[in-house]
Design a binder for these strands. Sequence first.
DNA 1: CTGAAAGCGCTAACAC
DNA 2: GTGTTAGCGCTTTCAG
Lengths: 350, 350
Amino acid sequence: MEQTRRAARRPTISDVATAAGVSRAAVSKVLRDAYGVSEEMRSRVHRAIEELDYRPSTAARALRGTTSTIGVMLPLFRTSFFDDVLAGAVEELETSSYQLILAPVDSAHASGRRALEALSDRQVDGIVALSPLVEPTWLESFATRTALVELGRHDPSARYDTVVGDDVRGAELVMEHLLALGHRRVLHVTHHDPDLAHLSRTPPALRRATYEKAMTNAGLAEHIEVLETSFDDRRAAEALRVALEAGSRPSAVFAGNDDAALGVLRTLAEAGGRHGLSPRTVSVCGYDDTKMASHPLIGLTSVDQDGAAMGRLATRMLLERIAGREQPRHEVIQPRLVVRSSSREVDPGA
Amino acid sequence: MEQTRRAARRPTISDVATAAGVSRAAVSKVLRDAYGVSEEMRSRVHRAIEELDYRPSTAARALRGTTSTIGVMLPLFRTSFFDDVLAGAVEELETSSYQLILAPVDSAHASGRRALEALSDRQVDGIVALSPLVEPTWLESFATRTALVELGRHDPSARYDTVVGDDVRGAELVMEHLLALGHRRVLHVTHHDPDLAHLSRTPPALRRATYEKAMTNAGLAEHIEVLETSFDDRRAAEALRVALEAGSRPSAVFAGNDDAALGVLRTLAEAGGRHGLSPRTVSVCGYDDTKMASHPLIGLTSVDQDGAAMGRLATRMLLERIAGREQPRHEVIQPRLVVRSSSREVDPGA
DNA sequence: CTGAAAGCGCTAACAC
DNA sequence: GTGTTAGCGCTTTCAG
C-alpha cells in the first residue's frame, strides 16, 4: 500500500459514493440513519466508509445546521472545583451523541466575551459557561443566538439558564460553625478583581457580605477583617503573610475558596510560628470541598457545593434548551458543610 | 430596537456586503487585510460589521482551508501536571492568531482515537495530544492528515513530533536520592492499566523499570516491591493500605507521580500508625512536582519536569509544523529533583 | 428506494 | 480598485 508523504486529502462523501457505486445523497442517508435505504446499500456504503477511513467533516455539517457539539467555557484559572464541573459535563454527555469542546480562558480577563464568541463561531449548538465578567445585557443578546447556561450567576435571566450554589447559605454555615467554636477574631479572605469590584452578587461578594453580616449580628463588627487578594494559593499566602506582619492575629480564618484556604495554611505553617500562630492553633475553613481538602495532612473544613452535580445539571439543562425549551430555568444548589481537622475551638490561651 | 424572541439568524458576509453597498469579495478582503481595498471601502465595511455585529463563521472558513485553531487533547484524568501543560500551550498561543480548543477525554480509555478524530473532524490545523493508548502505527497514519505533536512518547516518529521528559533520568534521580539516604526497603507505586500493560516505553513503565534496575544494582533485588495501582490519590492510598495489611514495611516509597504520592501520604497519615509507620518515618518521593507537592503541610520531594515548558515547546513545534516543517522533531526535557520535607534518612530504629 | 441539484458562508482566482 | 464566480463537503427537498 502506497503511503504518500504529505497529507493525503481527506476522503469526502463523494469518494465514498464513488467507491460504493451510489450517490452522495445515499451515503448521507446511511450516515444519518435516515429513512429509505436498502439493507444492501447500507452495507455497501459501510464497507466503503471503512475502506476509505472516511469521516464526515463537522465544518461542512455545521454549514448546513447543527454540529452536535456543545461548548464549555471555564476560566483556565483552574481550581479543582472547575475540574469537577467539567467532569460532570463530560459524564452527562457520555450517554448523548454530543461532543464537547472546551475553550480555556487565559485569565479572569475580559476575554470571556471572546471565548464565548469563538465557541459560537464554531457553531456549537449550545454553551455552558462560567464567565462572571461578562455583563448580563451582553449575555442576553448573545443568548438569543446560542443556547446558554451560565454557572455562578445569582441573578436569573429571561434568555439563558443559570445554575448557582447558594453562597449565602454556604457562608452562613461556615460562620455559624466558627462562631459556635467560640471564635471572635475571624478573618475573611476574598477574591478581589478590579473588573469585578462593582458586582455585588458574585459568589465571592456574597460570601464576603454574609461574613460581614454574621460578624455584625454576633456583635463582632469591630473584628471584621477582610483580606482582598486572589483565590489562589500563593497570592492568598502572601496576603496573609503581610497581614500577620502588620499585626493581624485571627483565631479563625474563613477563606472564600479552598485554594485561598490552602494559601492560609501555607503561611500559617511557614511563617505563623513567628507570630505565635500555626495551622494547629488557627481554625481554617475553605469553600468548594476540593480534593485536597480531604487529604488528612490538610484536613480542611470546607463547603461542598458538588461541582460535578452542577456540571451535570447545567449540561442537562442545556440539552433541554437545545431541544427547544423556551422558559428559562434558574437552579440553586444547596451547599453542605464538611467539618475536618482544620476546625478547632478557639484557643483559650490566645 | 426590536428584540426578537428567538435566535435571530446570524448575519453573513452577504448581509455585511449589502449593508456596506459593496461585494462580498470586498468584505472578505477587508476581513483578511488582503491587498486591494481603498481606505474608504475599508471603513464603510468596518462600520457595517460593527452595526450588524457580524462575525465570520469558522465552519465556512474551515470548508475552504484552515481554521486558525489548534486542538489539545489531554486525559480528563487531570493531575495538575496536565494543567501546567495546558497553561503552557495557552500562553504560547497568546501571541499568535491561533485559537485553542480542548477535547477532554473521559478516562484513560481507548477513546483517545475518538477524541483525536473529533478534533480532526473539526478541521483544526494541528493537534497537541497526550494519548498513550493510541498505537504508533495508527498515529502515523493519522499524522499524515493532521499536524501532530505527541507528549510523553519516548519513541520518535517520522510523521509526528514528540516532547517527552527523561523518565529514566528522573527515576534515577529519585533512586539515587533515596539510596543515599540509606533506604533499602524502597517500595514503588506504579500506574497499571491493562490496556497499557504491553507497552514498555511509557513514562510509568520506564520509571518502574528504572526503579527495579537501581534496586538490583544496589544489591537490593530482594527488596523490590511494586504496587500496581492507579496514578490517583484514592486508589494509591487503598493499594498501600492493602499492602501494609499484608505485612509490607517500606522505609521509603517512590511513587510514580504526585497523585499517587499524595495517596501514599494519606494512608501513612490515616492508617500508618497501626503498623508503626507515619508520614514522618517513611520517606516519600513523587513525580511531576505539582502544586500540592510544594505545600508545607505536604512537602513532597518530587521530580520537576516543567509541564508548562513542555506545553509551550509542544505548541511551538506544532506551529512550526503547520508552517511547513517536514522533518520530525523529538525533544527530551531534563528533569530536576526537588527535595522537600518528605525526604528523610532511614529510621535507624526500624 | 435512489439520485440530481440547490445552497449553507466563505475565499480566491479572475475579469472588469 | 472592485465585482463575479466557482467551488469547499454536506444535507435536503424533490423528481424519478
